[in-house]
Design a protein around this nucleic acid. Sequence first.
DNA 1: ATTGCATGAGAAAACCTTTTCTCACTTGAC
DNA 2: GTCAAGTGAGAAAAGGTTTTCTCATGCAAT
Lengths: 358, 358
Amino acid sequence: MTIRLVKAFLKPIQKEDVLNISGGKRGRITIHEVASAAGVSISTASKALNDTGRMGAETRERVKRIAGEIGYRPNALARGLLSKRSFTVGLLTNDTYGRFTLPVMAGISDALVDHGVSVFLCAIEDDPALAQIHVDAMLDKQVDGIIATGKRLDRRLPVDLSNLHVPVVYAFTEGTQNSVTFRSDDEQGARLAVEWLATIGRRRIAHITGPEDFFSVRERAGAYHQVAGHREPVLYGVWSENWGHEAVEQLWERPGEKPDALFCGNDQIARGAVDALRERGVKVPQDVSVIGFDNWEIVAAQTRPPLTTVDMELKELGRQAGLTVLALAEGRPVEPGVRKLPCRLVVRRSCGGRTPEE
Amino acid sequence: MTIRLVKAFLKPIQKEDVLNISGGKRGRITIHEVASAAGVSISTASKALNDTGRMGAETRERVKRIAGEIGYRPNALARGLLSKRSFTVGLLTNDTYGRFTLPVMAGISDALVDHGVSVFLCAIEDDPALAQIHVDAMLDKQVDGIIATGKRLDRRLPVDLSNLHVPVVYAFTEGTQNSVTFRSDDEQGARLAVEWLATIGRRRIAHITGPEDFFSVRERAGAYHQVAGHREPVLYGVWSENWGHEAVEQLWERPGEKPDALFCGNDQIARGAVDALRERGVKVPQDVSVIGFDNWEIVAAQTRPPLTTVDMELKELGRQAGLTVLALAEGRPVEPGVRKLPCRLVVRRSCGGRTPEE
DNA sequence: ATTGCATGAGAAAACCTTTTCTCACTTGAC
DNA sequence: GTCAAGTGAGAAAAGGTTTTCTCATGCAAT
């Protein structure tokens, strides 16, 4: 101890040390300050703080304590320059409204914040030039990886990410050959919905959904046919409340028995349908059960009655995408392929049959 | 020219050059490769690319051309280490749904992408500990500045940003003493709405709005009183469709003349009101004009009829916040204070009186 | 012929960390 | 009393870029 103190005392005090310690210099506190405050060399300080190298337990503790006291935080730029890790990932999306991106983003951030990783969000609006600019900017900043996400499972982002020298993971958007892609299991989700309707005793289940060229639409319709049979028609349309409204008009104008349940392709359609039913004097859920898809709180929870719906677990999807891109960045092996994540049924009031959980 | 070529030829070829040029090394192309490919020193290459220093025009062109050919892009980490600029800003928000954050983010990104600046998005969910973690992570990454945004003009983020050594700008959230804050001019926006109703001939304008403890609510109600007088009541409630619905019930159950216009505190309330009116057989916009606030497309455009509403120009707000934080980061002086940005009236069908512009 | 100056380009330091290598010193064994 | 091994800590290099300083060359002026 004495020896060390003497050493520290004898160490020539450099001009910049004084300036820094006295707070005269504008910049942040560097490891340099820690070292000179603790009376050790920069190398020793670094090793003490990172729990590497050999040194006396007492020295290590002292350095750590002093670093804490003077509020030292390592400069991530300098660290990244050497380690080739920036502790940064980029999230690329063409989903302007954030309907799908925000939950995915929340999951990514949630999974990565513990690892000290921050997320660049880049909204590219389907503009290839803008997308390229953002990708280049991210690469310049040495992102550890890129996660691509979108508003549609069966469309690519308007930029090629296949030959980057950083790992790329796709979440809720079409990936490339040999990539890792996370998506919701729409078939399973649809089955969940239709089976629930069957469980609560509905037999004449109609399906009102979006445009047939959407992959999700075909998957959901496929599961619907499988579970419900072909007793009721599938009505393809667009993703709007108006279409839900109109589809109900169509169904109820037809001669013959009316459906006793509607499985809707998304919550907006479901909401339009519920409104149309109310206007016709058809009671939801007493006369007809309605179930949506997406669990878009802002629509599902505000509908009267609140919608029972299928949640695609986008946050979990984001979380897994985040952990995967991190694994790749750290060189851990990851099996390429498409991973389907299960959906979850959220029961509210629009189907009846059970008291809501929430 | 000859001399330079000879020099380039004579320059000893270093092992690492060969590896890099041949693509054998994993890393990116550095200025080192550019320099040796062009037969100049690193310093000259740097100066050529940055249009600084003295050198022959021909040398400069050659370096630039070669850099382009081999796809050189400077490492932002290395550059930032020296320049103290990371070309990165952080956006901190507690608005989970992204209703306000996404447009603000779009504006920021839009304004800064031309300057090579990328944006970290950090959603902090009103959790002070999480907020601190994110702020620390951003500071470690040497962000050039932080923009704080939220879901409410009169609330602070649960973290103190007042003594950071990077510039902070507040957008759509309460700032600190001596800071720069951007917010919408809700008073002007409300006046716009009520004056529009007056212009199209409405005289009995009621105001259905959110909780009175919101600053925006009081500002909007103030403007409403100023323009419309006190002939109709102000109904305070919550920000939901249900409340809009219920408020209409209340108004129409009262004895006496009914309002011929409703100025609603947000689009959700407006939507609930429109629904309630339809259910009562009151025609919108023939019998009653309804106007909303927020221009939340997903609500306003899907209402039947689509809502005339007030847009807070959040994207523009984000743009200005972005440019301001950039100015501060570059050391340009910025006057502190609160800047109110004007709102814009978006005319759709729910008021009548004019053919919609869109 | 010498000096002075402008021009073009390179060497080296700086930014902040981490990591490898080296060195001095202590201890235990012979 | 010498040697080997082990221990604690520092010197230096590396990472990619920018910037300042220095140097060499050629030319015009004395």
